[in-house]
Amino acid sequence: MQDYYSTLTGWMIPISRAMQANSIDAAKALKACDISLDVMQDQESSIAAEKFAHLLEYCNKKLDRHDFSVLVAEQFHPGMFHALGYAMMSSNTLYDALERIAHYKRVVSNTCQLVNHERNEHLVFEMNIFTYESTNRPVLSQETVETFLATIIRFSRELVTLDFAPVKVCFAYPTPRYDVTFLKDYFNCEVEFDSSQTAIIFDLKQTKEKLLCGNPLITHSHEKMLDEFMARVDKNDLTHIIKNKIFELLPLGAPSQTEIAEFLGMSLRNLQRKLSDQGTSYKEILESTRKKLAMNYITQKHLSLSEIGYLVGFSSVGNFNRAFKRWTYQTPGDYRQGRKP
C-alpha cells in the first residue's frame, strides 16, 4: 500500500525552485527517484509519498548543510496548495488558518493527521504520522517532516510578520547526525528532538490576533471549491463512508465495528485491514466523529448536555462527560460556560 500514501504535486513548485537556486540538476534528480518529468507539468495530481521522500533525501545529500528542507520552505507560495493556500491566506487569524489546513489537509496529503489543540497558553499544531502496516515505518521521512513544518512557519510569517517565531518545534525522531543549527536558525526558537510528539507550539494569544489580510468572502469562496473537491475524493473514500454511517446511527447508540462491516458487505477482518492500510482504525474514526458532533452541538444552547450525550451515542451523561473531558480537558458544562459572551 505504499503508493496509497501520496502528496500534492504542488510541492514540486518550491522544490524545483530550490533545486534551481542551488544548482541541482532537476532532470537527474527526478530520474534518480523514478519520478516522471510530467509531474512538473501537472499540479493537480499526486506523487507517492515514498518517491517524494526520496527526492528530498537526494537533494539534501547534494548540500553541505543538509538544509534543503528550509530552502524549499523559503520558496513557499499559496498557489502550491491551490484553493487551500488562498483560503488560509485570507483567514481572520493564524488560529483560523491552522484550523483550515488541519480540516482540509487531505487536499494536500493523506500521510498524516493534523490536530490543533489548546494546552494552557499554547496552541499545539500536531502531526500524527501514519505508518506502513508491513514495516511499521513512518510514512513521512525526516526530511519530509522538516520541510512541512518549515513551510507552515514560512506561511505563518506571510500572515503575521516576517520575524514571526513559534514557541517551540518538536520532532519525534532522533537528533540527526548532521549539524541542525540551520533548523534552530530558521525556526528562531527551541527545537527539540526525540520528543513525544511532532508539533509546532504557538503562543495561543498570538494565533488569535486579528489579521489585516482577513477576508471572509474570499475564504468562503475558496472553501466552497475545497468542499467540492473533497466531496469527489470522499465519494470513494472508505473512512468517509464509515463516518456518514456513524452519523446516521449515533442517536441509536454507537454502532459496533461488526455492524459497520456488515453494512459495507465485508468481513470484520477485511475492514480492519483496509482501515489499517489507511493509517486509521474504527475506534479512531468513531472517536473523531463523536468529538466533531459534540463540539458542534455544544454551541447550540437549546440542547441540554444530556441530549448532546444521547445524540453522540453515549448511554449516560457520565460517559459523555468523561469523553468530553478527554477531548478538551474540560467538562461539557465548563466548556459551554466559557463560550458565553
Rank of each mutant, 00 (worst) to 15 (best):
K105A: 06
C112H: 14
N116Y: 05
S141N: 09
E133Y: 09
I101V: 10
R106C: 05
S90F: 09
F155K: 02
V115Q: 14
T147E: 08
E99N: 14
G85V: 10
F155R: 07
Q142T: 14
N120W: 03
E121A: 03
L98R: 08
R119Y: 13
F148K: 00
L149G: 09
N116M: 02
H117V: 06
A97Q: 02
C112A: 15
H103Q: 00
H122I: 10
S141R: 01
V115W: 09
F148E: 07
Y132R: 05
Y104D: 11
S109H: 01
T151C: 03
A87K: 09
S109E: 04
S91C: 06
Y95M: 11
L149H: 09
Y86F: 09
R157S: 12
S109Y: 08
D96P: 06
N136H: 08
Y95N: 03
A83W: 06
N120I: 12
Y104P: 10
R154H: 05
M88T: 10
S156C: 13
N116H: 09
S90C: 05
Y132M: 01
A97W: 01
Y86Q: 04
Q142K: 15
S90M: 10
V124D: 05
N128G: 02
R106I: 12
V108G: 00
S134M: 07
M89W: 00
Y132Q: 01
R157Y: 10
N128K: 15
E133C: 11
R106V: 04
E133M: 13
A97L: 11
M127L: 15
S91Q: 07
V139L: 03
L149D: 11
T131K: 15
E118I: 15
P138T: 14
G85D: 02
A150V: 01
A150H: 05
L140P: 07
T131D: 15
V108R: 11
F125C: 08
V107K: 04
N116C: 14
F155I: 03
L98M: 13
A97D: 00
E133A: 08
K105S: 06
V139N: 03
L98F: 10
R137N: 08
C112K: 15
T93S: 10
L98K: 12
S134P: 01
T151A: 12
H117Y: 15
N110Q: 07
M89F: 07
H103E: 09
N92T: 09
E121S: 05
N92K: 08
I129G: 07
R157L: 12
Q142M: 15
E143G: 07
L84K: 02
T144A: 15
A87V: 02
E99S: 15
V107E: 02
L140N: 12
S134Q: 13
S134V: 06
G85L: 12
D96H: 03
R154W: 00
V107P: 08
N120V: 05
F155D: 08
